[in-house]
Computed example of a mutant assay.
Amino acid sequence: MNNYILYIVLFLVGLIGTYAIIPLFKNLLINSNVVRPNYKKDMIPVSMGIVFLPMIIINSIILIYFTKDPRNLLYVFVFIFGMISMFFAGILDDIIGNRDVSGLKGHFKSLFKGNLTTGGFKAVFGGFIGILISLSISKSIPNIIINTLIIALSTNLMNLLDLRPGRAIKVYLVIIISIFVTLTGYIKVLPLLILPNVLAYFNFDLKAKAMMGDTGSNVLGISIGILMVFGYSFNIRIIWLVFLILIHLLTEKYSLTKIIENNKILNFIDKLGR
């Protein structure tokens, strides 16, 4: 199949399929009492990131069917593995997580005191997932360290942003579309396993009809991290890693929401569409 036709098929299947199943999963979460107050204290479904998963798998089936080079299957399966792994870590945090501890520093301090939080589990688990993925594409120690940090911190980046309706997805769309445009070779198709799904769900998040929760933000974050280590040079990965470290250090000390609210341009973009 022609690459552009395949891209269109994956995009439409992901977009239409995800849009169709959103009401089903929203009702499932409400009926199961998987709801939580949002920043306005309205009770809405959480873990709606679950809607990303079905079409990731269905589109992967389509992609694998048309993948002729067996070596490219590694990229597909590693990408799927990473997203599904962090999906389950996220849904665990959404359902049984304790909100008394926040931030990577807080979760690790709690862990060192012998108290495991779901956030601490997610951070450690995400780190090991990062190591596993890094080892699958490189045996160079510097690359393993850099790639592991990129995957782990990219995953947490979306968690840092997912504090207001639509905020994380707005940033995600800017990043993932930039990645799609600049990637080359076979891996250029991989963003289409998740991008149309997110677009279909975007308005529900933006209008505060549901929260994707860590279930969704983890999937978005790790998809960025994996694509960064798959498709970019050492120098670009270093630049991205420096950005990730700086944003994490910043948010450990200052409120990202207050920073955005105090900047007219950022605040306008943040509230756009709500």
Rank of each mutant, 00 (worst) to 15 (best):
G114L: 08
G231A: 02
Y4G: 00
I57P: 08
N235Q: 12
L244R: 07
P142H: 15
I56Q: 14
K41M: 05
G120R: 10
A208G: 03
I16F: 15
N38G: 06
I80S: 04
A210W: 09
R164F: 15
F11E: 00
N235I: 15
R274V: 04
T18H: 02
P23C: 10
N159M: 00
I226Y: 10
F204W: 14
V219P: 02
P165L: 12
M228A: 15
L157E: 06
L246A: 13
I247C: 08
P142C: 12
S102L: 12
M86N: 10
M86K: 00
F121K: 13
M83K: 04
T148H: 12
I175T: 08
I238R: 05
I224T: 01
L135R: 03
I91E: 11
I269H: 08
V242L: 11
S136Y: 04
L116Q: 13
I145K: 07
I177T: 14
L132E: 08
V13L: 05
I30N: 14
F25G: 00
I58E: 00
V101T: 11
I30K: 13
K113Q: 15
D162E: 07
L195W: 03
G82E: 02
I5R: 05
L24N: 08
P54W: 07
M55Q: 07
I95L: 15
T257H: 13
G106D: 01
Y75H: 10
A208E: 15
I131Q: 01
F87P: 01
I58G: 00
N31W: 10
L266T: 02
N31F: 06
F81D: 03
I84G: 10
I44E: 07
I57D: 09
F79M: 00
